[in-house]
Design a binder for these strands. Structure first.
Lengths: 137, 137
DNA sequence: GTGTTTGCAAAGTGTTTGCAATTTA
DNA sequence: TAAATTGCAAACACTTTGCAAACAC
């Protein structure tokens, strides 16, 4: 977890001014434990919390937070971007029917034998996504 | 590898008429070994091969082939869809700078300890993507 | 002939951008 | 007050859709 109190210093360290919008979005993101949000979800939450923020600013903020390593972007759906408040290396369940994303807890997935990267490249990340269908087999 | 010769029967089995466009696209896809294409790439290839196909038909065909299990869709980039002619379970390197996708050969990645799926769900697939940055560390 | 498929152009969706007005330091 | 940030609307890239013409069986 990344307490909201750390956010202010993190923003400063990244040269991001702690504006009303950024602080409010940070509060929504980091006050409730680990979360997976899309821009649209976060914008809707801000609206219901009576925070006036444009969708464009939500997009900007999500990307700035990602650059500041407060968030991690997760690619599971070619039509939407997800952002994860848990930036530690870990993996995901993706519920295909509902579009929900969930962390796979702890070390429940282990990738053994990671291959060495092709010459001239470096491994940025190793991501495991387990796609799930709702309903039993 | 899935020889082109099997395609015709596969199409019939899926209730897809072997039209000029579908056969030509199948030839492009399956005659050259394992491939990773986007709709735009395949359309461009068809154009240079003097095959008259609209982009809309390329999209339709890619989805129909995917439904017929001749292709597998790979999600690595939230702005483009990739299709893989290798439908066997396997994993991928993704070259973030160039947008290229490559199979990780054989058993060079092993996911040990796949967690059991949450109640009421079935595992559809386990996908590993190793994201690569070009240039050495 | 009948139902399927195609191609086009228009519509759709999620995301980004240009720029004037506003806010922060 | 200088520089950063916001909000809006327009622009964007990729993908899907509606429908008449062309095609497969």
């Amino acid at each position: 977890m990344r307490p909201y109190s750390q956010v202010l210093e993190r923003l400063r360290a990244s040269g991001l001014r702690p504006t009303r919008q950024r602080l409010a979005l940070a509060k929504l993101l980091f006050d409730k434990g680990d979360r997976h949000v899309t821009a649209e979800i976060l914008h809707a939450e801000a609206m219901s919390a009576n925070i006036r923020v444009s969708l464009a600013t939500v997009y900007n903020t999500l990307h700035q937070f990602t650059a500041a390593k407060l968030l991690r972007e997760i690619v599971v759906d070619s039509s939407r971007s997800y952002f994860d408040t848990n930036t530690d290396p870990h993996h995901h369940f993706y519920f295909e029917d509902s579009g929900r994303l969930a962390d796979i807890p702890g070390d429940q997935v282990v990738v053994a034998e990671v291959p060495s990267p092709p010459a001239g490249t470096t491994i940025e990340s190793v991501e495991v996504v387990i796609r799930l269908a709702e309903e039993a087999a």
